[in-house]
Design a protein around this nucleic acid. Structure first.
Lengths: 224, 224, 224, 224
DNA sequence: GATGAATGAGGTTTCATTCAT
DNA sequence: GATGAATGAAACCTCATTCAT
């Protein structure tokens, strides 16, 4: 398998890397809660410290710059997608069903942690080049799980011969729209409906010409 | 026609509204160039002033708070879409072709002014409630031009009976992806290819079952 | 008579001194209205200009620095006292009655223009040394009208042999208290009562021992 | 005893209220020294910080707005009067002597801290309504100590039946004149003479008709 | 004479980061 | 390891003053 992206080293003032990781987890979670309110710039270290139940000084034992906290937080968020997609990728299912499950898993995380998703999209560019490059790499790797499902469908002849990379990015982005424009969609439909509709959009694109639409995985064409 | 959103009043220290508008245009354009580099928070008023070729003090004659500059800049950006879509909406064309032209127009603006598009997506939430509400309204109004084209296609029976609002939001978001993830896509394809592909995705969704794919407006299924 | 204090020259950008004086009158009056709201520092030239119905630039034709406006305004205020006291000083009246009339005149101005009085007391020290010295001189000159009445009473033997300068300053200050602590006294008594009481205080001090209290000019010892 | 005025809460960025009070004391003292030079508006936070021997940032840990510094400084000043008057109020003395001591105590503070006194008089109105109301309340409470002495004299029949509230305000204001017009009086007399003269003025008002002036507490009728 | 747009120095305030305890 | 007081650079914003028209 291709080499995985490696998180730019965050120098800690401690030797106990294990403890450092544990604390960084707390810091990252607290940070997300804060960033969700007012974004990265409007959040102060003091707020994060309070939210994490530790002191400002302690945060700076495990983190060198404020930006590191953002990187940690985004990194944690990206791991969520990976964790959710890996088990599905391993299942032995027809490609369409596998894709459906992958989309529900991916979009489900966005629904349950909309702040994390929104922050990843909104604030990544605040990072320095190394941080941004890392996030891009991680994103690519995460998306690759979906990409492979589509490739598999194409190989098996159940999907049309499309550019799997392209439609994968669409899938990811349309998932994030639920976080970015949630204020709009939540009023119009449930999250399940939302995912189902996006899945149908994707399937309409992937389904080979002439293929019967009744393949069991989709239903509502025009619900609302 | 439905009432248009009205820009929250930005008080100027001047009575000459005409001059105020002229200056705000300059300020907005300069601001976009600056925000494109480092975002709203990393940009200082002094940078904007220098970029706009005026003094800090003068900016504050036409704007009350830094946020107002963002609102002005976003407002200008939104106007671009509207200006581009209105003439197309008036054309007498088959729905699919009209939609294609609308998408090319909409996406074309994003391609030519990627900073504007990215900022609108990334920084809107920095605005206060009044500003955010205004942007949401404007967005809805802009999207409505696309929505109507789709509705027309449905009414004429050339599009499937889908939720026009939903697919319209997808179209808009996928257009913005070119600005948000440009670093990724520009390396892979031309902007025309990008639009064409997204158009095909949308058409795969809209095309009624059994409809011949050869309707003259689309071509490449799997280009790259 | 001793030489009168001379207003530090305020250079105007015009040759027509007559017009300059006329405009300065308007500026001073507008300034007082503004200073009354928020004091000297919180008032902007623009506010004064608007209040005076002229432009900022025009003010600067007749005044060189913002402080000049304050000086002009204070000078106008001081003239009010002088104008009111001079005719009384010329009257041929028993000293106690003359003093009573002088106090009513002096205090009456404070009552009718409390902002002017308060500003003179509060903001004088903002002036540069030349300005402050001028105000001090003017104040001395104004007080001298009262001082002379008291001296006359002493000379005639109807007042006790006190330090006329000292009690005169008391009289002036107690008059200004109505402007400085008006919020307190206006709720407790009418302005006439206030003056009467202060007059009685002064007369208790000035009245020679054994002198009959019934000299027609006083009445209420403990009104409220 | 009547409820005391409560200082509007000044939020500190610290939980250690004890330290906060200690620092606020230093800040207030430094502020007074600065305000004495150029007044509230002409004084910069940086000047106060330097004078207090701390950094600008530290000041803002214990104070939220510049105005808070003024409030703190004025509050400290008002406490001085109270501290000086309370022990005297408890003494068992003839009313006239008690009043004399109270006036010497009150005026003595003004003589020793003329800047504090002047600032309280000049700058109070800069405070917001809550601050102003607090200062008014404190002033009333302080004055009440003097008021009670006078009332006692009236009750015992050694003072005339006057309005004690009124003469008390006179006493307070005439004391402050030494701070406001010190440049004038210091050249003419010692502070003791000044107090003695004002005391005589007050006693002339309070002494019942026919009472012998030789009651041991006063002497010079026309000293200078 | 009159206007008000334009300047830019300087003030208040915030907050990332350090470091003594 | 943990704390939070202390620093000071830098940002936003105001407004006295000037000057082209």
């Amino acid at each position: 398998m291709e080499p995985t992206a490696v998180l730019p080293h965050i120098p800690s003032r401690t030797t106990n890397e294990e403890l450092a990781e544990e604390k960084r987890l707390l810091i990252g979670e607290a940070a997300i809660r804060c960033f969700g309110q007012g974004g990265f710039h409007a959040t102060t270290i003091e707020q994060i410290a309070t939210e994490a139940g530790m002191s400002v000084g302690l945060i700076y034992r495990y983190v060198k710059r404020k930006e590191d906290i953002l990187l940690v937080a985004i990194d944690q968020s990206l791991s969520l997608y990976e964790s959710a997609l890996i088990p599905i990728a391993r299942l032995d299912l027809p490609p369409a069903e596998k894709l459906r499950q992958a989309m529900f898993a991916y979009y489900g995380i966005i629904d349950r942690k909309p702040d994390r998703a929104a922050i990843t999209y909104r604030e990544t560019w605040v990072l320095d080049k190394a941080g941004r490059d890392y996030v891009k790499q991680r994103e690519l790797e995460t998306n690759r799980h979906i990409e492979r499902i589509i490739q598999e469908g194409i190989d098996r002849g159940v999907f049309r011969t499309v550019d799997p990379h392209f439609i994968t990015y669409d899938i990811a982005l349309l998932g994030h729209m639920w976080a970015l424009k949630g204020w709009h969609f939540r009023a119009l439909m449930s999250h399940e409906e939302y995912v189902q509709k996006q899945f149908e959009l994707v399937m309409a694109y992937l389904r080979p010409p002439g293929a019967d639409q009744v393949d069991g995985v989709e239903s509502s064409a025009a619900s609302s």
